[in-house]
Computed example of a mutant assay.
Amino acid sequence: MDQNRQFQPAVYIMANHKNGTLYVGVTSDLPRRIWEHREGHVEGFTRRYGCKRLVWFELHATMEHAIAREKQIKGGSRAKKIALIEALNPEWRDLFFELNP
């Protein structure tokens, strides 16, 4: 990994397929974290359910804001999570390839 990389807090949603299982997470390095999910390096929920598709993300100025937003999203209904995804990504494309490394 690039030692000079700038970290950017982000909240993200992973899915295994359209309208499938959803996972909400927070990170300071979105490209690295999504790569870890895709490669199965993250034990637990995403690996167990095959959530390898980045379907939504939101960048934040601080980690505190990102964590607060993650809690808000996790506390919401599945319908609200799907509405977030479909507002920006109605086809549920894998956004991993659109991230700037």
Score class of each variant (00 low, 15 high):
I82W: 15
R53N: 13
V26D: 06
M63Q: 08
A68M: 08
V11T: 03
G44N: 14
V55H: 07
S77N: 08
Q3A: 04
P31G: 07
P31D: 00
I73K: 12
G76N: 06
V55T: 02
T21A: 03
G76K: 12
L54W: 08
N89P: 03
A87S: 08
F96M: 03
R38P: 02
M1E: 01
D29P: 14
R5F: 15
K71P: 11
T27G: 07
T27H: 11
Y49E: 02
L30V: 13
W92M: 08
E36T: 08
Y23E: 13
R32A: 01
R38N: 00
K71L: 11
K18E: 01
L30N: 02
P90V: 01
A79H: 09
E86M: 03
R5M: 06
D2G: 05
G25V: 05
I85W: 06
A83S: 15
R47M: 09
T27W: 10
R33F: 14
H60W: 15
P90Q: 14
Q8P: 00
E98M: 14
R69G: 05
A87V: 11
V42I: 12
M63F: 03
R5K: 15
A68S: 11
G50P: 09
A68K: 08
W35P: 15
W56R: 10
R5Q: 14
H37C: 08
A10F: 11
D94H: 10
D94G: 03
A66K: 05
G40P: 12
A87K: 07
I34E: 01
K52G: 00
G44F: 10
E36D: 14
L95A: 10
L95K: 11
P101R: 12
V11M: 02
N16D: 15
I34Q: 05
A83N: 04
A61C: 10
N19Q: 08
L84W: 04
Q72A: 12
I67D: 09
N16A: 15
E64I: 11
I73M: 10
K80W: 00
K18M: 14
R32N: 07
N4F: 11
G25S: 04
G40Y: 13
E39W: 02
E58K: 00
V11F: 09
P9W: 09
H37D: 05
Y12T: 04
V55R: 04
R33D: 13
S77T: 12
W56D: 07
G75V: 06
H17S: 13
H60D: 05
F7S: 10
P101L: 04
Q6T: 08
G25R: 10
I34R: 09
N100Y: 07
F96Y: 12
I82F: 07
L99W: 10
K81R: 13
A15I: 01
V42D: 09
Q8D: 01
E64C: 13
V42L: 01
E58P: 05
W56E: 13
A87C: 12
L30D: 06
L95G: 05
L22M: 12
L54M: 04
Y23M: 01
A10C: 14
Y49V: 12
M1F: 09
I73N: 00
V11K: 15
E91K: 15
P31F: 02
L59E: 14
K52R: 09
E39V: 14
N16Q: 08
I67L: 10
Q72M: 12
R38Y: 10
M14D: 06
K80F: 02
W35G: 12
V24S: 05
I67F: 11
L99C: 01
Q3V: 06
